[in-house]
């Protein structure tokens, strides 16, 4: 795999009013990486993700996509960069007034000129990939939490994004489905060459799929480690080792 920097997080500081959620985050995410954002509850993982995908302006610092400065770009440049992202939100964030098929189809209608028949095929395929074949006509309220998340993932990959950002994919999923989702993430990386940023607590999946990572600490309110999570488990910072072994080391 070529080591080509794809996303660069530069001196990022995120705040809510006077409350500093995280400060001075610096990371480089290479093309084809599966980058794991780790950390305890409320340490600012979702907030970091929102800065990455252009939803929340950082108090300081910026994010570079393939060398292009996102936060200092014009709205047009930002829109163009955003087009390359696929995002799965923590709760799925499915549009409640649309069926699953319509949810996945909407980005395709917006950004491709494909005929409706082709779109239907792609929609069914994406839903099948996440294990929701046959649920096309369901509305989000008719699904369980885990199913909503998977449908959210199907929508996130509708346009074969270059960068896939996933917030807590496996929380609330049963172990087998969680495992299937890990396999799917690996598969998306290998087949589409996507760079994947994933926020997760699931130790098995961190160690299974993560190729690089950052650990956000909620006491010092900054990152305390980066690198491959398997190496962090062996020889990393004590706090990170404790996190990765559920406090047993």
């Amino acid at each position: 795999m070529e080591k080509e920097p794809h996303i660069k997080i530069h001196n990022l500081t995120m705040t809510y009013g006077d409350f500093i959620v995280q400060h001075d985050i610096n990371c480089v995410i290479n093309k084809g990486d599966i980058f794991v954002i780790m950390g305890g509850n409320g340490c600012g993982k979702t907030t970091l993700m929102r800065a990455l995908v252009g939803l929340q302006r950082p108090a300081a610092g910026t994010v570079f996509y393939s060398g292009e400065d996102f936060w200092n770009g014009t709205p047009e440049e930002q829109a163009r960069l955003k087009r390359r992202l696929g995002i799965m939100f923590q709760g799925g964030a499915l549009w409640s007034s649309l069926t699953l098929a319509e949810n996945v189809a909407l980005p395709l209608h917006e950004y491709t000129g494909l005929p409706p028949g082709r779109i239907d095929e792609i929609v069914s395929f994406k839903l099948a990939l996440v294990g929701l074949a046959g649920f096309e006509e369901f509305y989000p309220v008719e699904l369980s939490g885990g199913m909503k998340k998977r449908a959210g993932l199907a929508r996130a990959i509708a346009l074969d994004p270059e960068i896939l950002v996933i917030d807590e994919p496996s929380s609330g999923l049963d172990p087998l489905t969680a495992r299937r989702l890990d396999d799917l993430i690996l598969e998306l990386r290998d087949s589409l060459g996507a760079t994947i940023v994933v926020v997760t607590h699931e130790l098995a999946s961190i160690l299974n799929i993560g190729s690089s990572s950052v650990y956000l600490d909620s006491e010092t309110r900054t990152m305390i480690a980066t690198g491959n999570p398997r190496e962090a488990l062996k020889s990393g910072e004590a706090k990170v080792r404790r996190f990765l072994t559920r406090g047993e080391a």
Partner: peptide, 17 residues
Amino acid sequence: GTMQVNEEIDAFKTMGI
């Protein structure tokens, strides 16, 4: 408001809709 809480509005924004 509920759509804001469920991040549905964010999902629109990130897709440029």
